[in-house]
Amino acid sequence: MAASLTRLLERSLRTTHAPQSSVRLFSNGSQKQQQQQPEVEDEEEFRVLNLRPVKQQFQRRRDIRRDDVTPPRTTRMAVDQDWTAAWPGPRSFHPASVPLPLRQGFTERGAAAPSKFANAELMKIPNFLHLTPPAIRQQCEAIKKFCTPWPKGLETEAKWKPHFPVEVITTDYCQSLPTVRNPEARRVTVSLKLSDLKFDNHARDKFLRLVGERYNKETDVLTFVTDRCPLRKQNYDYALYLLTACYHESFVTEPWEATKSEADMELYLFERNQAKRSAEAILNWNAAEGAPKKAASASYAQCVEQLINEGENEYNLAKYKEEVMKMLNVAAQ
């Protein structure tokens, strides 16, 4: 339809401008029409209004020229090639780059597993082709220049332990996320042996009361776990602050501490109990006025403390009996 209209219009134009016969109003781009035009001019009488132009010769489909697909790189690989150069970093499996006859996949009994070409399963699983022993050796050689020798005199744990009494434990998280932050990484654990700190009797007692559950009696280890601040640095500072503050506070004697009664004692002490007074009363029986007072022996004090602190058992009771008999000068039968 459009083609015939164009032709009509073109003709009317041609009659007005006679010399310019090859003016084209619309660029149809088909060669055929231009070839037809001389015919139309010849047979001016019997022009056919072709409403449904029949496609006389449809264009042949152009063949898509494809470049030759290059054969897999593995066919050109030398046997003694440098594999670290062929596979330098982590990468999904590619069959054309790995010269191994790999197969992966489940098949029914008897059938061969799918080959490495067009095998999505091999692309899924993480591979360590970039971490072959030669590659690791190469990388270790490369970073060796940044290493410093291990300090002398700190070879074994027994040797370095006294120099580093405080142990700080933190956790780093590796995750497949666009962010490197992880709220769990803020936790800091600071632990040390209580025997590394110097105390007097009062300070030790007060310190243990201050730290409470953080002290493990079995292992003699004191542990501070801090996670209340958002950042690791803050938590580390806070843990060290807690340790310092508790240590120094334990040496302060408050005025109300003098009112500590027998019920508040955590241990039975011979020195401040009735047992001492009774023993002294027995030992100083009928003593002359002004004579030096006899005190109970240290071994007796120790065995009484042991008996009450550890509880009554065969050994403690026998020891107590022995000490009492010794104190009262009673001969054993």
Binding site: G105, F106, P114, K124, Q175, S176, L177, E184
Partner: peptide, 30 residues
């Protein structure tokens, strides 16, 4: 395909996951 031939209950037996990340681990983010 091999992927389609194995129904989902064969994941981790005959075929593996299509997404590999740490987000689905316990207590991990986003």
């Amino acid at each position: 395909t091999y992927e389609m031939a194995n129904p989902p209950h064969f994941i981790a037996h005959r075929k593996s996951w299509n997404s590999w990340n740490t987000s689905t681990l316990l207590d991990s983010q986003r």
